[in-house]
Amino acid sequence: MQKSIDPRILDEAAGWLMRLHAGAVSDAERAACERWRRRSPAHASAWARAEQLMDKLGGLPPALAMPALDRPGRPARRAATARLALLLAGVPAGWAAWRLAPWQEWTAAHHTAAGERRELRLADGSRVTLNTASAIDVRFDAAQRVVLLRAGEILVRTAPDTAAAHRPFLVVSAQGRLEALGTRFNVRQEAGLTRVAVLEGAVRISPGQAGAAERILPAGEQASFTAASMSGATPADYTIAAWTQGMLVADKMPLAGFAAELARYRTGVLRCDPAVAGLPVSGAFPVADAGRALAMLVATYPVDAIERTRYWITLVPRRSAR
């Protein structure tokens, strides 16, 4: 059983975590944090949770791990601290619950809701399109151009850097980083895994773990990687970016996989009965209208969409087909 910690101490731990990752930190501030940590066993436990949370945020470079916490304005900062304290209350009880919390949306500078898409034009002329339930932060400085993918999926179209330094363009995920080499590419963050498909140019993949081998992925190939390793490259599915046009393209996709994809674009639960999980689905379905996509599915295949509520739908074999 996880021992509870006084919410006031968790709130203080959240405040220290914010301060230490919001920019330059003085030796005096670090010493003060250390004194706070040693104040009692409960303070030490709260700080241990804070460190675990930082580890869970992906093993990113310290300057990128929590970039959106450096916010102007006390009300917004106070709200972010309160939410962080709530996260600390659940560490390490269950990271599955943590994954369900809208942490990325709370802190990211740019994000989309379920079913929403959004295109951003960055300061250098590059464009980033966010898919459903996605979140990013953008950090450009004199040395590099960084997009931190905190959740979901993006399509990146890079522009040549006009700065004299010719700064590299990087996408940083929880598993590592991608360096664009004059390119258009799709990146998707999943649990413990990042997927990338290169549509134009090339991308250098660098897993986050020290010593892990890098690889340059050329146009027409796709791969996935963890913090420690990469999968073998396979031919890129060029329909992977159909979502930017509001479509989900399926080619003999098992119904269970189709349901999982469509579920990303709606609020609530979309389940698939095991009896029809392997049914191959093909076609182009509008993700901007998940209800219409389900109607098309039911009209084409021997399945029914059973609604417990509008937020809970199960795909089952059609009664006449059982």
Rank of each mutant, 00 (worst) to 15 (best):
T132H: 07
A135Q: 04
W243S: 02
R204N: 10
V298I: 04
H110L: 08
A236R: 01
G283R: 07
F225E: 06
G257Y: 13
G291N: 11
A305T: 02
G23Q: 03
S4H: 11
Y301R: 06
T309A: 06
P207V: 04
L87V: 14
A260F: 10
A114G: 13
V147W: 05
A46P: 00
T300H: 11
D273W: 09
V138G: 03
R319L: 13
A142R: 00
V276K: 01
P254V: 00
V156H: 15
S320E: 15
R8F: 07
A114M: 10
M18Y: 09
E51A: 12
R310A: 12
W106C: 05
P72N: 08
L130Q: 02
T267D: 01
P274Q: 13
E116M: 14
L155F: 07
W98C: 14
V196L: 07
A236P: 01
I313Y: 00
S229D: 15
A89F: 00
G152R: 15
K252P: 13
A233C: 09
D124H: 01
E179V: 02
A299M: 12
Q245K: 14
A288Q: 06
V281H: 05
G73I: 09
D27I: 10
E12I: 04
S45D: 03
H166S: 08
V171M: 06
A293G: 08
L84F: 10
L57W: 02
A50W: 10
K3F: 11
L199V: 03
A284E: 12
I205D: 11
T309V: 00
M54N: 08
L10Y: 14
Q222A: 13
E51P: 02
A163D: 13
A213V: 10
T162G: 09
M253F: 09
R310W: 07
A228T: 12
L193I: 00
L199D: 03
V281Y: 01
V203F: 06
T300N: 15
A44C: 07
L297W: 12
T132C: 10
R177W: 09
E190Q: 15
A256D: 15
R121Y: 10
M253I: 14
D137I: 09
L262D: 00
F140L: 00
R157D: 11
R204P: 07
E214D: 14
V203H: 02
R121Q: 15
V303N: 05
L170V: 07
D27N: 07
F140D: 06
H111Y: 01
R30G: 14
P168V: 03
E261W: 12
W243F: 03
V203R: 01
V91R: 07
L122V: 05
D55P: 04
V198N: 04
S229Q: 05
L64M: 08
L255C: 07
T244A: 09
G208L: 08
L315G: 01
V196D: 07
L69C: 15
E12W: 00
M230N: 09
H21R: 06
L248C: 04
R271I: 00
R215Y: 00
A236D: 03
A277C: 10
A13E: 02
I9T: 03
R19V: 05
P41A: 12
A80L: 13
A46W: 03
P286K: 06
A256G: 12
D70N: 15
R264I: 14
L53S: 07
P75S: 12
M296V: 09
L315E: 08
V91K: 02
E29N: 04
A82G: 11
R264Y: 14
L297G: 04
E221F: 14
P207A: 11
L217M: 04
A96G: 15
R177M: 09
A321E: 01
